[in-house]
Design a binder for these strands. Structure first.
Length: 422
RNA sequence: GUGAGCGUAGCUCAGCCGGUAGAGCACCGGAUUGUGGCUCCGGAGGUCGUGGGUUCGAGUCCCGCCGCUCACCCCA
């Protein structure tokens, strides 16, 4: 570990070339599924006015209180590197006026920033694919969006992720419930541990997650959010469940499932894996029917989700999935004048679109060049020496199979490879 | 923000009760002047994260700092 030299900023990681084929594969599959459901890409800025996040995510959430990369722009205005994508997407939707033209379905992909302590599956710069639909209140959409995420995960070969589901009801119902729960917990405060007492003030719903047996006993008799839902939300939730049942998608109702952002209403869902360490959520989302209005737009129901790409790629890697692209088809060994190699390589690329050809450059013995051809993973070594140059041909050596090597004219080579190259 | 574990070659790591630096892989060269992968031989590469302390002597023991990892918290 080099102590000299400049290191990357803590929690900001490089995606190295060994990894990027897997990223590209994941991104391509996800994009195809999104487009198959009528979503269109929107590209959003990484920097927004701080106010946007304070008003959407919620003043008292961890994200806003202690995790945002916030600083003053040179004109003295407070700006923030986006900690999540929904707020910016809603802002752009309102600003462009598109939210009331039909029922826009949008998706985006890119880095998000949160100043947390890094650990497995948690970085300060991480990447999400997000999608949102505006203007549709019906439960069919909730179900369709969940089915779409199920399709993505299936298309990527991930069959061991579990779906968790809950409903948070309307903000009013949730606030009323929170009062009841807090009152109940205060009566049993002596049986709560320190951690739960703290959450009593910040987020009492979280106490359902406590691992302390004594606390769990208290929670077993606690009032439940699902019993406290307003009638319309309860019905909405029933419809979502029925549609998922009908589609054959398994889920588990988790009354403790609470999204960390204040703007969620009604349906919330989360895809969880056991293979990711303590941060098991790969994909999560829910309704946010009040957010557009809260940010200054006309009242507009909405729903969305975010999928964590680092976590997804970690799962794919763990499953041994194959990535996109691959090593060069061929490596050109140059044992003659240095200009000849580049010239030949260009002619081959002209004749064979899609060819992945690496041409040797710089010094290097014949032997060293062949070794490099082998090491780079190329199927063939192309050898260009004085003899080939004189006879206007090229030696093609099969580095992987039994074909050995032979000399071919350039036209012959192109003809042979035209079908082989993808 | 809190806690625990770990920092030795490019990478993965060994290094005992303190005696002055090692392996495998990767890299370069040779055995084979135009033939890689296997084998053999050789080479290069380290202020042992950093600063202090103890000691005749510290990679090894003690303390501070920095970094990484995992967990808590929280979340994608």
């Amino acid at each position: 570990m080099a102590s000299k030299g400049i290191q990357s900023v803590r929690g900001f990681c490089d995606v190295l070339p060994e990894q990027s084929p897997l990223w590209q594969h994941a991104e391509a599959v996800i994009r195809d599924v999104l487009e198959g459901y009528g979503y269109r890409e929107i590209r959003l800025p990484v920097l927004e006015r701080t106010e946007l996040f304070r008003r959407s995510i919620g003043e008292v959430t961890d994200i806003v209180e202690k995790e945002m990369y916030t600083f003053e722009d040179r004109n003295g205005e407070s700006v923030t590197l986006r900690p999540e994508g929904t707020a910016g997407c809603v802002r752009a939707g309102i600003e462009s006026g598109m939210l009331h033209q039909g029922e826009p379905r949008l998706w985006y992909m890119g880095p998000m920033f949160r100043h947390e302590r890094p650990q497995k599956g948690r970085l300060r710069q991480f990447h999400q694919v997000g999608a949102e639909v505006f203007g549709v209140a019906a439960a069919e959409l909730d179900a369709e969006m969940i089915l779409m995420t199920a399709r993505m995960l299936r298309a990527l070969g991930l069959d061991d992720v579990r779906l968790q589901l809950n409903s948070l009801g309307t903000p009013e119902a949730r606030a009323a419930y929170r009062e009841r729960l807090t009152a109940y917990l205060r009566r049993h405060e002596d049986r709560l541990d320190d951690d739960s007492r703290r959450r009593l003030e910040t987020n009492p719903l979280r106490i359902f997650d406590s691992k302390d047996p004594g606390v769990q006993a208290v929670m077993a008799d606690a009032p439940r959010l699902l019993d406290a839902l307003d009638e319309a939300s309860a019905e909405h939730f029933e419809t979502v469940r029925a549609l998922l049942d009908r589609a054959g998608v398994a889920y588990e109702v988790n009354p403790a499932l609470v999204r960390g952002l204040d703007y969620y209403t009604r349906t919330v869902f989360e895809w969880v894996s056991d293979r990711l360490g303590a941060q098991g959520t790969v994909c999560a989302g829910g309704r946010f029917d009040g957010l557009v209005e809260q940010l200054g737009g006309r009242p507009t129901p909405a729903i969305g989700f975010a999928l964590g790409l680092e976590r997804l790629v970690a799962l794919l890697e763990d499953s041994g999935a194959a990535g996109r692209g691959g090593p060069p088809h061929a490596y050109l060994v140059v044992a003659t004048g240095s200009g000849e190699g580049l010239a030949l390589a260009e002619r081959l690329r002209d004749a064979l679109p899609g060819l992945r050809l690496q041409c040797h450059t710089g010094p290097g013995s014949f032997k060293a060049q062949l070794k490099r051809a082998d090491r780079c993973g190329a199927r063939f070594a192309l050898i260009l020496g004085d003899e080939e140059l004189a006879e206007d041909c090229i030696t093609v050596k099969d580095l992987r199979g039994e074909a050995g090597q032979r000399r071919l004219g350039l036209d012959e080579l192109v003809a042979e490879w035209a079908d082989w190259i993808d």
